[in-house]
Design a protein around this nucleic acid. Sequence first.
DNA 1: CGTCAAATTGAAAATTATCAACGAGAGTGG
DNA 2: CCACTCTCGTTGATAATTTTCAATTTGACG
Lengths: 244, 244
Amino acid sequence: MSGSCFAERLGDLVAITPAEHSALERLEERERPVRRGAAIQRENDRVGDLFILRKGVMMSSMLLDDGSRQILRFLFPGDMIGLSSLAYREAPETLTALSDSVVCPFERAMLSEVIGVHPRLGALMMVYGQIERTALTDRLAALGRTSAKARVAAVLIDMRNRLRMMDKSIGDTFTLGLTQEEIGDATGLTAVHVNRMLRQIEEEGLIARSNGHVTFINERALIRAANYVDRYEGLDLGWLPSAR
Amino acid sequence: MSGSCFAERLGDLVAITPAEHSALERLEERERPVRRGAAIQRENDRVGDLFILRKGVMMSSMLLDDGSRQILRFLFPGDMIGLSSLAYREAPETLTALSDSVVCPFERAMLSEVIGVHPRLGALMMVYGQIERTALTDRLAALGRTSAKARVAAVLIDMRNRLRMMDKSIGDTFTLGLTQEEIGDATGLTAVHVNRMLRQIEEEGLIARSNGHVTFINERALIRAANYVDRYEGLDLGWLPSAR
DNA sequence: CGTCAAATTGAAAATTATCAACGAGAGTGG
DNA sequence: CCACTCTCGTTGATAATTTTCAATTTGACG
């Protein structure tokens, strides 16, 4: 074993030196499989390791006390997850596998070791944190100010784009891998209404569906309907100190 | 001038060495007043400096293309703001003063300098970032899964708690400093509905209102109505390397 | 074939938005 | 000091969106 998912992710942002790369590899020395449906961290449990997701799709969610669930974020290979362990004694969020997955657990102290030796990686992780933050604020604005249809469309686009990042062969057709209830928990809607919105989006000719697969028929219109902003253009990391 | 708002904030989390403290002070060497209503960063404008808010209350918001606005976060003294400049060429969010304020602008490169000399501060800023992130996810869950009344109540509680952090003399009565339209933009509601929810919360005996002041009459019930979770208990930074 | 989760549909109810109007208070210029 | 204007808060009536409830239907799988 030699690669580092997380280093690859950061490497998409800026050039990584071999020394930095091998420091990041230390975060992925251990591997742990997670079966579909299983949780590696549960809300209110004492926090433990952080993780790097190596394989599969997972989600981060919170339960409200009326029993409803809010999905905060879908997680893909190369994501560093469970970072809330850095600040809290008990986890504020649950981390669950949506498909059979593999995570690499590592201790919190390992992170400060890495930053201690390679401060530039600390700065880079702050950048990574801001990208994550902006994804959250986009979702916040979507929940607060866009229609049910737009929110459902946004989930479709976001899922396709992120799946494509890990598998370049994905084009306009992909496997969503979410139940309508899960889409509802991500968008703040009921499963019933998600169903109606999907149907409406389909009837308008923006997508086609067949047994779990979604095909974008009119991507431009879908993006418009979703109010979608692509944050992956427009990155600028020129201020980072150059690699040494 | 000698203090550092941001160092004070971090100092609430963990002990800061004098050397670290003076490094943080460099981030607050310049001061700039901002009048109520003025913006120090506008969505889609080329990003510039980062800021530390020294005085006043500000907000971070996004505009949607139908003209509606989502307030992402209220900002208080000691907050480091505009961090999205670390990752993007154009700002994803607007930063506006809600009251006459004072900010300390500093360059992005300054941040990597500080982290380079004091890696432990880099780790500490990641912790700070996770606290911010959790505040956002709590709001996300509130928008997605709680009633209008709960969301309005949550704004009241959050505002009171954060105002009290900068002014210990604040008890159950405080000046909200927000219009009902602003509360609506924060909660994803219309100003009209915010008005009705405030009235309802008042009629139920949870709060009292008089010209801009709010008084908590039954805080326990208000917290229950809001689904409020206090994240300031439960912090744990034991994993950080000790100060040297 | 039987079972179970997930998807689908219709009808009714609840929540929230929209529209339209009015009132109170703060500042402004004459 | 007095209109005048403007923003903000308030209220009622109505409309739109979304949820809830209650069945079915479909598809995967043992």
